[in-house]
Nucleic acid binder design. Structure first.
Ligand SMILES: [Zn+2]
Ligand SMILES: [Zn+2]
Ligand SMILES: [Zn+2]
Ligand SMILES: [Zn+2]
Lengths: 170, 170
DNA sequence: CAGACATGAGTTATCTCATAACATTACGGT
DNA sequence: ACCGTAATGTTATGAGATAACTCATGTCTG
């Protein structure tokens, strides 16, 4: 397998040890591109918020982000964080993880997607898994009962291989 | 199609007009059976909580349930509701809807399942859709990246046919 | 039956997550 | 320079969830 960085690889890399600076750089580049392409303004708070999310593959709570922002001279009240995070989510630069009431940077922004999330309950890392079959299966089940799907949430809680190995000899 | 009441029918019925007393009676019967079968105690608060959830196909917030309980002479503090709800979820008599931070009675309890939910954003009704293909697809995607799934959340937000029809001539 | 133990129900207090409402500042077009 | 809009900031409050403790009730044992 090559060393390319497709979306499909994200899930694999998130839990494995890897050169994370690439993750960060790529996502930030994509964000800058998007801002330039569409007239969107990736302001300092917004960009910094994205950088904070990109520091880890864990999902961060809004208040966790806020604390960081406040410490760096930005506003220190909840709406500051929520607005920046909402912006990122809105523009596909971050995702909200329902299960954790938390946010994670998107690692393959630009190609509009709503991935499934794999959440390790031990290390708290989150991986995006692009699984179109899941989405189409759900959509199919929905039309069968007269329901039109607009947005969907697919999240799995479990153990990544690393944590599974670490837990076994408990 | 016959008038049987399988799990597969639930999704269809939830959004359609139907004889809801059957939903209620069936679910309560199943709950009583389960309590009798396993040594589990379906105490007054717990049973009443289930009844409250069963009044509607909407998902109710814990505080909504609590208000009802309190008004009927049960405890009026959050833990009362949360404990009863946790019990019901634990024993498969209710589900938690992540997207809404709310709870809905299970309409086909007993046969241990973790269904997908269809949530109408207009009427707020929630339907369970048993869709095994979704679960297996997600599980498959997970093993591919070294992740073992323990629990999964599949929820779709959208419009039921009735609400779609009502919304069109806006 | 008394005592010991477990489970459930109730309370108060507190915590985390999220948004409403409004004042202030920065930006872009004319 | 001027104005309108978008972004940032603030205070205050709403909504969801849990910790920690007390009390009642039921069950098992001797
Ligand atoms: Zn990385
Ligand atoms: Zn892990
Ligand atoms: Zn019904
Ligand atoms: Zn509806």
């Amino acid at each position: 397998m090559s060393v390319e960085n497709h979306a499909a690889d994200d899930a694999a890399t998130a839990f494995a040890s890897h050169d994370h600076s690439t993750c960060r750089a790529q996502a930030l580049q994509a964000a800058d591109d998007l801002a330039a392409a569409q007239g969107v303004r990736l302001t300092p708070v917004r960009r910094r918020t994205l950088e904070i999310l990109l520091e880890t593959h864990r999902a961060l709570g809004a208040y966790e982000v806020l604390e960081r922002l406040g410490a760096e001279g930005f506003g220190s009240q909840p709406p500051v964080a929520y607005r920046a995070l909402d912006f990122l989510v809105q523009h596909g630069l971050a995702h909200r993880v329902q299960r954790l009431n938390a946010f994670a940077a998107c690692l393959s922004p630009g190609h509009d997607h709503a991935p499934a999330f794999l959440i390790c309950r031990a290390c708290n890392k989150v991986a995006e898994a692009d699984a179109p079959e899941i989405r189409s299966a759900l959509r199919a089940a929905a039309v069968g009962v007269g329901f039109s799907v607009e947005r969907m949430t697919v999240e799995a809680l479990g153990l990544c291989d690393a944590c599974a190995a670490a837990e076994r000899p408990e």
